[in-house]
Design a protein around this nucleic acid. Structure first.
Lengths: 138, 138
DNA sequence: TATATCCATGCAATGGAAGTGCATTAATCG
DNA sequence: CGATTAATGCACTTCCATTGCATGGATATA
């Protein structure tokens, strides 16, 4: 994929084979993944490399972190032109307690939240737990 | 406090010195606490005891768990008559990124969240991050 | 081209938090 | 008081996140 390389460059991320692989892995998934998921997909690579690659992606705002309450951090690609802004970019996440999948509901923006006087909101984390469409078919 | 003992009994929790102390510790706080916080407050007690006491309190629905995204679980007393129900009891939590405090905004109930067709919502975790009233005074 | 520099990678190790098994002590009930 | 049941304490384990250091590859510079 020529596209990925130029995309990474446009985000001032140095292009390496590993990074392209990880990016493609993430973009193939429609659910958020853990570090272990990536680890299992790339046996040959070291855990630290994967970890730092994800951190780099995060810094450059092409990946966002999700805390779905399971205790392990999950990651997913951001939408194009995402800056993880409170007003425009934040979407809610759905965690299925049956299959364990965590899904970005990117078209479900987070409603405006009122906070008490004196408080300043900068970020919102909204996770809905329940059962997903696939699990409800059974 | 005679009141605490009868309260615990009413929840069918066996009354011990430790449990009274922990309950009072929690009710003195207006912020959610971590297990380590409790540990530091009670040097003499073993971590496991504190851990299991909190779990007991959770089971009996007098304490709720909060995942504010810091990676460590926090705990706070429930409101009276709370059953941690989706519709009536769930409130939002505010996490201050400056002082690290996590606060229950019990009068801020969680707005009704729409999820896509096929999905069933059972629980919602809503954490707003930013700076709290105390930190904004500086 | 040679060399210096910067950064990605890999290995090893650490630290923190959650959780479990088992033995001991304390509380309740008959 | 004696027996049963539950609470406490200790030791350990596991899992995940994170960091330090050494190495190797890519890039820029002379």
């Amino acid at each position: 994929m020529q596209g990925v390389e130029t995309f990474l460059e446009s985000k001032s991320i140095r292009v390496t084979a590993m990074r392209i692989l990880i990016y493609n892995f993430l973009s193939d998934k429609d659910v958020a993944v853990t570090l272990s998921d990536i680890e299992n997909a790339f046996d040959k690579a070291d855990r630290t490399t994967l970890y730092r690659t994800i951190k780099t992606f995060e810094d450059k705002e092409i990946v966002h972190q999700i805390d779905d309450g399971t205790g392990v951090t999950k990651y997913a690609l951001c939408e194009p032109n995402c800056h993880c802004d409170l007003e425009t970019d934040l979407h809610l996440h759905f965690h299925c307690t049956e299959c364990g999948a965590t899904i970005c509901l990117t078209d479900h923006k987070i409603p405006k939240i009122k906070v008490p006087k004196g408080f300043v909101a900068e970020h919102v984390n909204l996770v809905v737990k329940g059962t997903c469409d696939k699990c409800n078919c059974d």
